[in-house]
Design a protein around this nucleic acid. Sequence first.
RNA 1: GCCCUGGUGGUGUAGGGGCUAUCAUGCAGGCCUGUCGAGCCUGCGACUCGGGUUCAAAUCCCGGCCAGGGCGCCA
Length: 439
Amino acid sequence: MTDSLKNCRRTHYSKQVTSDIKDEEVVLMGWIHEMRDLGGIIFVLLRDRDGVTQITAPSKKISTELFEDLRKLKKESVIAVRGKVQESGKAPGGVEVIPEELKLLSESKLPLPLDTTEKTRAEIDTRLDSRFIDLRKHSVSAIFKIKSRMLHSVRNFLESQDYTEINTPKIGASATEGGTELFPITYFEREAFLGQSPQLYKQMMMASGFDSVYEIAPIFRAEEHDTLRHLNEVTSIDVETAFTDHIDAMNLLERLVVDAVTQVKKYCQDELDTIGFDLQIPKTPFPRIEYDEMVDMVNSVGVHMEHGEDMPRAAEKAMGEIMDGYYFITGWPTSIKPFYVMPDPENPLKSCAFDLMFQDLEISSGAMRVHDHDLLVEKIKKQGLNPDSFNRYLAAFEYGMPPHAGWGLGAERFTMTLTGLKNIRETVLFPRDRRRLTP
RNA sequence: GCCCUGGUGGUGUAGGGGCUAUCAUGCAGGCCUGUCGAGCCUGCGACUCGGGUUCAAAUCCCGGCCAGGGCGCCA
């Protein structure tokens, strides 16, 4: 039998239990992190959102009934404790709580699927199977507090620049955009697909007079990739701005990244300490390396790469060795970029596309877009696609489409750069990869 | 999808044709009034699945599933 909450409410979080409130009565609520029963004295470590407080129960100072109730507690059960804050040099952090009342709110089954005290580490697969318990570890929840702060910063920054947040459909009819594999779904009597990118919708919004838009939403890619930096469902931070070019887009992206890093460092220092990551605020401007220059750099360290081909993984790694932190690669060949990318007016074999890299990881890619209807149709045809299936998209270019540019930034890959994590799965609560569809 | 490596108690591991299957953590019980990776004693708990080879398979072989690493794919 467990107790009910009734009108009992938490007064403090563990973090707030310091010597500043000694002798005060507090009500703490949380999970039992560890129990140490020494016979005549029991130590209960109560863990809540971002801290752990020691509940100290000496048999001679509390009632026999309460003492016996405390002795029966099990790891990871949920409790509420009313007690008095006491200073003690012998307690962790110099303070402890002497209990006066205990409520057992929810009992935990034992043994646990993994060790929340991290004495024995668990593999990522085991952790993801029991993600709700894995997230009880402060070293894991810290990642998501950092990700949350990053997303807040991005929204604040874009709102401060007068961007409008939009929502575009994630279900669509098109299977003909080319490129990545799509997930087919059943849409009543028809086949439909999950959205791979809000790209075409963002561009249609450029013809709407909104000028500056952004969307933070999931995108789905049905590629059978199986790496530490790919997932089949990720969050894309997508931005599009009218009356601007790719240089403006890069400048905006650079400012947004620096702002987010600065905010994370300012508001998440505890979390960064918890995961043991020394986050550095990058210097601006980020280095901008021409594609051709990048190919030469890669070749000069003995990694073969042809001019005109997309970066093989070995080339990314080579660049990661040479470069430190964030940098842009610009002037990509038109032939390896999608149809909506604007060719360089000086040299149409090159494009106004850029990638933002962090060492060996591509975290964003963007471009100035084609806004001329006829050129766009021509480019769609050149990529072996049928312009007819882009009717609704192409119509937006026929009645006054301003020049525009934008980018998509991978929220999880960006989080990897903010936490130093090497496995993208660590940055998603419930990741979806080639094999994992639950929980 | 390809290549390499692996799958042993709840968790993390050692071992590698015949043994009572190693260790840590955990769990259960006991002792202990200052623990903080508490300590001590007793106990519990495992060879990924299917097929094959063999007198005998956790161990060798084949396949499935899953995982780790690498690559490819990623308009």
